[in-house]
Amino acid sequence: MKKIYIQKYYLILIIGLILSFQFEVKAQQRPIFSQYMFNGLVLNPAYAGNQPQLSISFLHRDQWVNVEGAPKTNTLIAHTALKDRPVGLGLLISRDKIGVHDDYSIYGSYAYKLNIGIGTLSLGLQAGFNYMASDFRKLSTIDQNDALFAGSVSRFSPNFGTGAFFSNNTTYAGISIPYLINNKVYKKEDFVSEAKEARYYFVTGGHVFTVSPTLKIKPSALIRVQEGQPMGVDLNTNVFLQEVLNIGLSYRSGDAATLLFELLLNKHLSMGYAYDHTLSQIRNYTDGTHEFMLTYRRSLGKGPCHAYF
């Protein structure tokens, strides 16, 4: 039992250091979502108001189940198109918790839409801030006098980003840099880390194929580039049945294979779930990742509320 406890302690400590401080290792700093293909605003501010509707989603992600101190993320995603104006507005509110660290963020988005004949091109901006608080007093350290893990710290970090998003009835493609400022990650009396937030670059695309009036298939992909890290690729396939049930499979390079579904409960409300089967070495410590989503949509025009992207 003691050996297992020690292994878990060091695992949590290593994860916390990698995700939060970065030191010589650069690692994932922003939350990753599995149902982003239906919440494009988490990747690209130009997605705001993509459909003529109001959309409000709540998403909960429980990453690496059974690993003490593993990331847990709660996110509110809201966006809408403005009637009779080529403008979309969006809002992201999130809390990302890992170990003794809490990261709160609020970002607003603005997208301007241009009709270019073959579809709509949206140009977007987002701005907001992250507030990170770390309480090291909750840690059980080997050296009680280690200044690095004493007391608590907090940091306020404003940021902004931009993106472009093209779409028509069957196809979409986007490119974005949601966070442009490389804020310092950590600063404390007697200790200053040179670690900084890394920029993310996202490229997305997908197409809806109509097989029959009751069956549609949507392959899609995401290229994720983080400064200082190898390029990551997501490959996805979603099958829509009767425009009521969506079943999907995803592969995230070097990280996870995902099974997901979304069920339209009525013309306004849908629920989604995704399970990530971990492929990296941490799979020896966890049963995977669960992600839950609840979405409310209300049409602003004559079109349906449910969208394929």
Rank of each mutant, 00 (worst) to 15 (best):
Y104I: 02
D103C: 01
D102M: 07
L76Y: 04
H79P: 08
L76C: 05
R95N: 12
Y112N: 00
E68Y: 14
G88S: 08
I106V: 14
D135N: 03
I98R: 06
R95L: 14
G69M: 14
V100S: 03
L82H: 09
Y104Q: 01
E68T: 14
F129V: 08
L139S: 09
G88T: 09
N145Y: 12
P86Y: 08
S109M: 00
D96C: 04
T73Y: 12
S105E: 00
L114K: 01
M132P: 07
Y104L: 05
N74D: 15
A81T: 10
N115W: 02
G119T: 01
A70S: 15
F136S: 00
L114T: 02
Y112R: 03
R85Q: 15
S122T: 08
K97Y: 13
R95E: 13
V67K: 08
E68D: 13
Q144D: 15
A127R: 03
W64H: 14
S140A: 08
N130D: 07
V100P: 03
G99R: 10
S94M: 13
L114N: 00
V65F: 12
S134P: 03
G124Q: 09
S134G: 05
G119E: 08
I77L: 10
R137P: 03
S122P: 09
I106G: 06
L92S: 08
K138I: 07
Y112I: 00
H79V: 10
A81N: 07
K97R: 14
Y104N: 02
N74W: 14
Y131Q: 01
V67A: 11
T73I: 15
N66S: 09
D84I: 13
L139E: 01
G124H: 10
L139P: 04
L91P: 05
E68K: 15
Q126P: 06
K138T: 09
P71N: 10
F129M: 07
A127C: 04
H79G: 11
I77W: 09
L114H: 04
D103A: 03
G119S: 07
Q63C: 11
L91N: 05
A133I: 12
L114I: 02
L89M: 09
H101W: 10
L125N: 03
I142H: 00
L125V: 05
S109F: 00
K97C: 14
Q126C: 06
S122D: 09
S140H: 05
K138S: 04
K97Q: 14
Q144P: 10
G117E: 05
Y110P: 01
S109H: 03
G119C: 07
G90R: 03
K83E: 15
A111W: 02
Q63G: 13
G99F: 06
S94L: 10
N115F: 02
G108P: 02
D84S: 15
Y112G: 00
Y104P: 00
L76H: 04
G128M: 09
S94F: 06
N145S: 12
T80S: 12
T141Q: 10
Y110F: 07
S122G: 08
Y112D: 00
S140I: 11
V87G: 11
S134F: 06
A70T: 12
